[in-house]
Amino acid sequence: MTNPRGNGLRSVAEQSEEERGGPGSILSRQSRDHADLDALMRAYDDEPDADARGRVVAELAERALRHAFAEETVLFPAYRQHLPEQGEELTRHIEGDHQQVNELLVQLQDADPRSPDYDATVRRAFEVIRHDAHDEEDDLLPRLQRVATEEELRAIGAAWEVQRRTAPTRPHPKVPRRPPGNALAAVPLAVTDRVKDAAEHLAAGSAVRRAALAGALVGAVVAAVAAARALRRR
């Protein structure tokens, strides 16, 4: 893409929460999530222990995948609706980056953090994630801000948050990057991902933690069922 700083738009990173439309606006939600992802990437850089680095990558992967899924199911369709002449090109670019991140995270999922190639793969994923965050905050989100009302930005933000909370937690490169295919595939994948997540934690957790995780799994299943019902109502 062209240099976003030459587009005459003001980056949402330079705006106050009020200017973005409040805490519930998609601009504010995206910006907060980008900051959280950046903090995890910096935590990886600061962590000398290989096992701890692997745990940081696992947490970042889950958050990045949820973030991307919410973009693909809610935010990118909003771009294409509100920016019919530009939205297709803008979103296709980042969808390609999301596909690349999914493929890199598949490689990292069962990799040994001590292996020679691990850090290089992590760095490639970080580069794409950071590139996307800058493109979105400097270019895509300000474009949407120009044409959407604050009420519309908050409605997009609320829908984005629902999808983020119920999204799959593991990489699935073969899933379509656009609705309705990605949204329909997400319902069973969100359940199976959480079953796998819970099984991994249960194997190592205390009795109290196991009980808490079992409760979280039940909640995840309920959320996935609710998402499926919402899809049927559309």
Rank of each mutant, 00 (worst) to 15 (best):
E136C: 08
Y79K: 01
L202I: 13
L104K: 01
L141Q: 08
I129G: 00
Q15W: 08
A155V: 07
W160A: 07
A224L: 04
L141I: 09
A39Y: 03
G205W: 11
R123T: 09
E85A: 15
E47R: 06
H131Y: 04
D117G: 15
A50V: 04
Q163C: 11
I94A: 14
D33H: 13
V187E: 02
T192W: 10
D135E: 15
R209V: 12
H131V: 01
G96S: 12
S206A: 02
D45N: 13
A111M: 14
Q81G: 04
R29K: 15
V57D: 00
R164I: 06
V175P: 00
G157N: 08
A227D: 12
E85F: 06
D36K: 09
L108D: 05
E136S: 08
L104D: 00
L184Q: 01
D119R: 15
A211N: 12
E88C: 01
R234C: 00
A158W: 07
T192M: 11
V218G: 13
E89F: 02
V147Y: 01
N7L: 15
L65I: 14
K196F: 13
Q145Y: 01
R92P: 04
A43Y: 02
A158N: 11
R114N: 07
S25P: 03
A199G: 14
N3A: 11
E85D: 14
A199L: 15
A52S: 13
P113F: 00
E103C: 07
V221S: 06
A226K: 13
R92T: 15
T73V: 15
D110C: 03
R42N: 15
T121V: 15
E18M: 03
E200Y: 04
H82V: 04
D36E: 13
I94P: 00
Q15K: 11
E62F: 01
A212K: 14
E17L: 00
L9Y: 09
S31L: 15
H134Y: 12
M1N: 12
R10P: 08
T169D: 10
A70Y: 03
A224F: 02
A227L: 06
G21Y: 02
V208C: 05
R164Y: 14
Q30R: 13
Q100A: 15
V187C: 05
I129V: 15
A216V: 04
F126S: 06
D193L: 06
A227G: 13
T91A: 05
R177K: 10
H34I: 10
R178P: 02
I156S: 05
G21F: 04
R154M: 05
R123Y: 09
G215T: 05
Q81M: 07
G96N: 11
L108W: 03
F69L: 09
V122N: 07
F126E: 09
M1H: 14
H201N: 07
L213W: 12
E200T: 08
H201V: 12
G215C: 04
A13T: 14
D51W: 05
E19L: 00
R164P: 03
V106Q: 02
D36L: 11
A212R: 14
D36S: 08
A183Q: 07
